[in-house]
Amino acid sequence: RSTHNEMEKNRRAHLRLCLEKLKGLVPLGPESSRHTTLSLLTKAKLHIKKLE
């Protein structure tokens, strides 16, 4: 059980790190620190579409 908890903790930490990296790559506007994961991913998707 503790192994599972540790793996889950590591998974969440990795996900958080990846989202922070994404936040640095996507133009978010003036309220960049107030975005939810969903809004960050939505803006990333729109940004990628613009680049295509």
Rank of each mutant, 00 (worst) to 15 (best):
P30A: 14
G29I: 12
K43Q: 05
L17N: 04
M7Y: 03
T37A: 13
E20F: 04
I48G: 03
L41D: 01
E6H: 12
L22E: 00
L46S: 08
K49T: 01
K43W: 08
S39W: 09
E8K: 09
C18W: 12
K43C: 02
R11H: 09
L17K: 10
K23G: 01
L22M: 07
L38N: 13
T42R: 13
R34A: 07
G24R: 14
K50Q: 05
H14Y: 11
L38E: 06
L17W: 11
L38A: 09
N10K: 07
L41K: 01
R11Q: 08
G29K: 09
P30V: 15
L46W: 07
A13Q: 07
S2R: 02
P30F: 15
P27D: 08
T37D: 04
L41A: 03
L40I: 13
L19Q: 00
S2I: 03
S33R: 11
I48C: 04
K45C: 03
A44K: 00
K9Y: 06
R11V: 07
S33H: 09
S2P: 02
L41E: 00
T36P: 12
L28T: 13
K21R: 09
P30G: 13
A13D: 08
K43S: 04
K50I: 04
S32G: 12
I48L: 13
T42S: 12
G24A: 13
L51V: 00
K21G: 01
T37L: 14
L41T: 00
E20Q: 09
T42K: 14
K23Q: 00
H35A: 12
L40D: 00
R12G: 10
T37W: 14
H14E: 02
R1Y: 00
S33C: 14
M7T: 08
E8L: 09
L25F: 07
V26T: 05
L38V: 14
K49M: 05
T3R: 04
E20V: 08
E8N: 14
L46G: 05
T37E: 01
R12V: 05
E52D: 07
N10D: 10
G24D: 06
H4R: 13
S33M: 15
K21P: 00
G24Q: 15
I48V: 11
M7S: 12
K9C: 02
L17F: 04
T42Q: 14
E6G: 10
S39Q: 07
P30L: 15
L46Q: 13
A44E: 00
T3L: 10
K43L: 03
L46E: 10
E52C: 15
K45L: 05
G29A: 10
H35C: 12
K23Y: 00
L41F: 08
I48A: 05
K9M: 07
L15I: 12
H14T: 10
P30D: 07
T42C: 09
E52T: 14
L28F: 14
N10C: 07
R11K: 14
G24F: 10
E20M: 04
T3M: 05
K45P: 03
C18Y: 05
I48Q: 02
P30K: 08
R1T: 06
L40C: 02
L38W: 12
L17M: 09
S39P: 05
R34K: 12
K45V: 02
K9R: 09
E52S: 15
K23N: 00
K50A: 04
G29Q: 08
E20S: 11
A13S: 10
K43F: 06
K23T: 02
L15G: 04
G24E: 05
V26R: 04
H14P: 11
T37K: 15
A13P: 06
M7V: 07
I48P: 03
L22S: 00
K50T: 05
K50C: 04
L28C: 13
E6Y: 08
L22W: 01
T36E: 06
L40P: 02
V26N: 09
A44L: 08
C18R: 00
L51D: 05
K21T: 01
K21A: 03
H47T: 12
R1G: 06
M7R: 09
L38T: 10
S33Y: 13
E6V: 05
H4I: 12
V26C: 10
C18T: 02
S39I: 00
T3I: 06
T36R: 12
L25W: 13
R34N: 07
L41V: 08
G29E: 03
G29V: 12
L40N: 02
L51W: 11
E52G: 15
L28P: 06
P30S: 12
K23R: 10
T37P: 11
H14G: 10
L19N: 03
R1M: 15
K49L: 05
L51A: 03
R11C: 10
H47V: 15
R12A: 05
K23D: 00
K21Q: 02
L40A: 06
V26M: 11
H14F: 05
L28N: 07
H47S: 14
E52V: 12
K43A: 06
I48Y: 07
G24H: 06
N10E: 06
H35P: 10
E20P: 05
R34S: 06
L22N: 00
L38Y: 06
V26W: 14
T3S: 08
H4W: 10
S32F: 08
L17I: 10
P27N: 10
K9E: 08
N10M: 03
L15C: 01
L15M: 03
I48S: 03
N10T: 09
R11Y: 10
L19F: 08
L22K: 00
L51R: 07
R34L: 11
L15H: 00
N5I: 10
C18N: 03
L15S: 06
P30Q: 13
C18A: 08
H47E: 05
E6I: 09
T42N: 15
E8G: 04
L51P: 05
K50Y: 02
L41Q: 01
E6T: 13
S33T: 13
H35E: 09
L25S: 01
L25R: 02
T36C: 13
H47P: 08
L19S: 02
M7Q: 13
A44P: 00
N5G: 13
R34C: 08
S33V: 15
M7C: 11
K49V: 01
H4M: 12
V26F: 06
K49I: 01
L17A: 10
T42I: 05
H35Q: 15
P30E: 09
L51Q: 09
K49E: 03
N10F: 04
L41C: 05
P27M: 13
R1W: 00
N10Q: 08
G24N: 09
R34M: 08
G29H: 15
G24K: 15
T37C: 15
V26E: 00
H14S: 11
L22H: 00
C18G: 05
E20G: 07
K21V: 01
A13W: 05
R11F: 12
K9I: 11
T3C: 04
P27S: 14
A44I: 07
E6L: 06
N5H: 08
H4P: 13
H47A: 15
G24V: 08
L19D: 00
R34E: 01
C18V: 13
E52F: 12
C18H: 02
R34I: 10
K45S: 03
S33K: 15
K50H: 04
R34F: 08
N5L: 11
G24T: 09
T42P: 02
S39H: 05
V26P: 00
M7G: 14
K43P: 02
H35G: 14
K23V: 03
N5W: 11
R11I: 10
M7H: 11
H14N: 06
K43M: 06
E52N: 11
L25C: 07
N5P: 15
K9N: 11
K43G: 01
T36W: 14
A13V: 04
A44Q: 02
L46M: 10
T36M: 11
P30W: 15
K50V: 02
S32R: 13
L40G: 01
P30T: 12
L19P: 00
T3W: 03
L25I: 06
H4Y: 04
S32A: 08
T37Q: 09
T36N: 13
L15T: 05
L25E: 00
P27F: 07
H35W: 11
G29P: 09
T37S: 14
H4F: 15
E52M: 03
E8F: 11
K9T: 07
S2F: 04
K50D: 00
A13K: 05
L19R: 01
H47I: 15
E6N: 13
G29C: 12
K49Y: 04
N5R: 11
L25M: 12
L46V: 11
E20A: 12
H35F: 08
R1N: 15
K43D: 01
K50P: 04
A44H: 00
L38K: 11
L22F: 04
K23I: 02
H35L: 12
L15D: 04
E52L: 13
E8H: 06
K45N: 06
L28A: 08
K21W: 10
T37F: 15
N10L: 02
E8R: 03
L25K: 07
H35Y: 09
H4V: 12
H47D: 01
R12D: 02
A44R: 01
L19A: 03
L38F: 13
G29M: 10
G24W: 08
G24L: 07
K23S: 02
L19K: 03
E20T: 08
S32I: 10
A13E: 03
A44C: 09
L22Y: 00
K21Y: 06
L22Q: 00
R11T: 08
C18F: 03
T37V: 15
L38S: 10
E52A: 14
K45T: 01
L38G: 12
G29R: 14
K21M: 01
S33F: 15
G29W: 13
L25A: 04
K50N: 05
P27I: 05
H14Q: 11
E8A: 08
E52R: 15
L46N: 15
L19I: 07
M7W: 02
T36I: 12
E8Y: 07
T42H: 10
S32M: 07
S2Q: 06
K45Q: 01
V26A: 04
T42A: 13
L17V: 10
S32Q: 08
H35T: 11
H4K: 11
S32T: 04
S2H: 12
L15Q: 01
C18M: 09
L51G: 06
A44N: 02
R12L: 08
H47K: 14
T36K: 14
E20Y: 01
T42G: 11
E6Q: 12
L46C: 08
P27L: 14
E20C: 02
E20R: 04
L38P: 11
L28V: 05
H14R: 09
L28Q: 06
L15E: 02
T3D: 02
H47Y: 15
K43E: 00
R12T: 09
H47R: 07
R12I: 05
L28K: 07
